[in-house]
Amino acid sequence: QEELVKAFKALLKEEKFSSQGEIVAALQEQGFDNINQSKVSRMLTKFGAVRTRNAKMEMVYCLPAELGV
Rank of each mutant, 00 (worst) to 15 (best):
E2C: 15
E3M: 12
L4Y: 04
V5Y: 15
V5T: 10
V5Q: 09
K6M: 12
A7W: 05
A7Q: 06
A7V: 09
F8G: 00
F8H: 00
F8N: 00
K9F: 15
K9T: 10
A10I: 08
A10N: 10
L11C: 04
L12F: 04
L12W: 03
K13N: 08
K13T: 08
K13L: 13
E14C: 15
E15C: 15
E15A: 14
K16P: 05
K16V: 08
K16Y: 04
K16T: 08
F17Q: 02
S18P: 04
S19H: 09
S19K: 08
Q20N: 08
Q20V: 15
I23T: 01
I23P: 00
V24M: 08
V24G: 03
A25N: 09
A25D: 08
A25E: 09
A26T: 05
A26E: 07
A26Y: 12
L27Q: 00
L27T: 00
Q28G: 05
E29I: 11
E29H: 10
Q30N: 05
F32L: 02
F32S: 01
I35M: 09
I35C: 02
N36H: 06
N36D: 13
Q37T: 12
Q37W: 08
K39H: 13
K39M: 14
K39S: 12
V40T: 02
V40H: 00
L44E: 01
L44I: 08
T45R: 15
T45N: 11
K46Y: 15
K46R: 13
G48C: 05
G48N: 08
A49G: 04
V50Y: 11
V50F: 10
V50P: 02
R51D: 02
R51Y: 15
R53T: 10
R53Q: 12
R53E: 08
N54G: 05
A55H: 10
K56P: 02
K56S: 10
M59I: 10
M59P: 04
M59S: 05
V60Q: 02
V60W: 03
Y61S: 01
Y61I: 04
C62G: 13
A65M: 11
A65D: 14
G68L: 08
G68M: 07
V69T: 14
V69C: 09
V69K: 09
